[in-house]
Nucleic acid binder design. Structure first.
Lengths: 241, 241
DNA sequence: GAATATTGTTTGTTGCAACAAAAACTTTGC
DNA sequence: GCAAAGTTTTTGTTGCAACAAACAATATTC
């Protein structure tokens, strides 16, 4: 058995950042944000069991806010119930991947196109910086960092469309696929995760071609789909043998 | 002042239905479902204040599950904070309406088309029944019932695409516009809410034309948009005077 | 030895009381 | 009459203990 799956030590890592508090400094929201970031970074292996008390201890809060965060994550589908009293980081099934991908194409396509139209002139420069950090991360094998900067890259374009609720909805989609990147961490460096598509995005923004920007993001999403699909296949074959 | 805004009596109405419990019978989920239904039915006037204790008493549960439900609803944007300690049913702003409509077109378009492809042969008959109930409701001015049956109509098509997460995401979009129909209750009967589009949906399904079904749903969404847009305009003009 | 029963432990949910902060209301001052 | 300051009440969050349900490990029986 994996006894470490319930150890608080396995959840810690980066102490919670306080600057997240914007309007209402609720402990439950903080716990939610903290867990969300870990999920998107692929910090948790699919199948890991998360308990209220462990999360509470790891985050230094009592059980109420920890439970709030876990419940909210489970409601969004970022965590699932493997039993009546056990929430785990979900294994991405093929059906779930296809569903999330279809939704990502619809929603991120919308956000990308509208964001590109309204993007400020200096956005391409910012994106170039992000891309540099992604390349650095790939070179130094800091994959959690790569995933996080990748998220920053996408969302700094999406953000421009000024649709806050669309943004949070897309975030919940990323929450669902994030953990599965954990499995293919070493593969990132080889396949140059998303590099080419991102370069096309930057170029399209410089040209003011929002349609091309959308197409590049859609390509990126489809590339991610293919990679995860392969990863799922491998896992399923391994579990069958 | 509207003292009734915090009265439990204003929240009651239909006692909570137990059959909702599917897998995990949590009191918090029940409270969430109960509030969700009321919101979609337009039972709450925008601006109404909802307090933890009032919801708890109205639903016959303690404050913990009531707080869970309110927090989840607020996280989804179905309720908003008007102050640090006050959650209200939101007034739909023009920006929010446009955002929700864009997302509805993307997501419900997807669900409608894929659902139409996989719809069972007897679905048109079921939809015809629903439509009959909608017409009855319009005639007898039971508008909350009309809104609920309208939801059943849409979702029984969407359900066919077998994308559970897409469904719940669409539901949260409905949650955001539901309350605003409260304002134009009397207007329903005159404008024959959604009747024509629904008939086209049924016909398209009988023809096996999924593209036409999608187009009909999109028309329905755009009609709803126009109606709500007008309602917002009226409200804004009234508040300016 | 394997299947089943049993016991002990872990775990989520729930209700509740305490606290601090924000509303609502009242009074005061001009 | 109106605005501002102070007071009272309401309200959300939090931590905690109790409970019941599920889980894991052990013992028991065939």
């Amino acid at each position: 058995m994996r006894s470490d799956s319930v150890e608080p030590a396995g959840i810690q890592g980066a102490k919670v950042d306080l600057p997240t508090l914007k309007k209402h400094a609720r402990l439950g929201d903080m716990a939610y944000e903290a867990m969300k970031e870990r999920l998107i970074r692929g910090a948790f292996e699919p199948g890991r069991k998360l308990t209220v008390r462990a999360v509470a201890e790891a985050l230094g809060v009592s059980s109420t806010p920890a439970r709030d965060a876990l419940n909210r994550l489970a409601a969004e589908g970022a965590l699932v119930y493997s039993g009546p009293k056990t929430v785990i980081v979900p294994y991405l099934t093929m059906e779930a991947l296809q569903e999330v991908t279809a939704m990502r194409l619809a929603l991120e396509g919308l956000a990308a196109e509208r964001g590109a139209v309204r993007a400020p002139k200096d956005l391409p420069d910012l994106l170039t910086e992000y891309q540099a950090k992604i390349n650095e991360g790939l070179a130094s094998r800091r994959y959690a960092e790569v995933l996080w900067m990748n998220k920053e890259f996408h969302f700094s374009v999406y953000k421009c469309c000024n649709m806050p609720y669309l943004l949070t909805t897309i975030e919940t989609l990323w929450l669902r696929i994030g953990p599965s990147f954990h499995d293919l961490y070493p593969e990132f460096a080889i396949q140059k995760y998303g590099v080419h598509n991102h370069e096309v995005v930057i170029e399209s923004l410089r040209d003011g071609d929002s349609g091309a920007a959308r197409a590049a993001f859609e390509n990126d999403i489809r590339d991610g789909y293919r990679r995860l699909k392969q990863s799922i296949r491998v896992r399923e074959e391994r579990s069958e043998s």
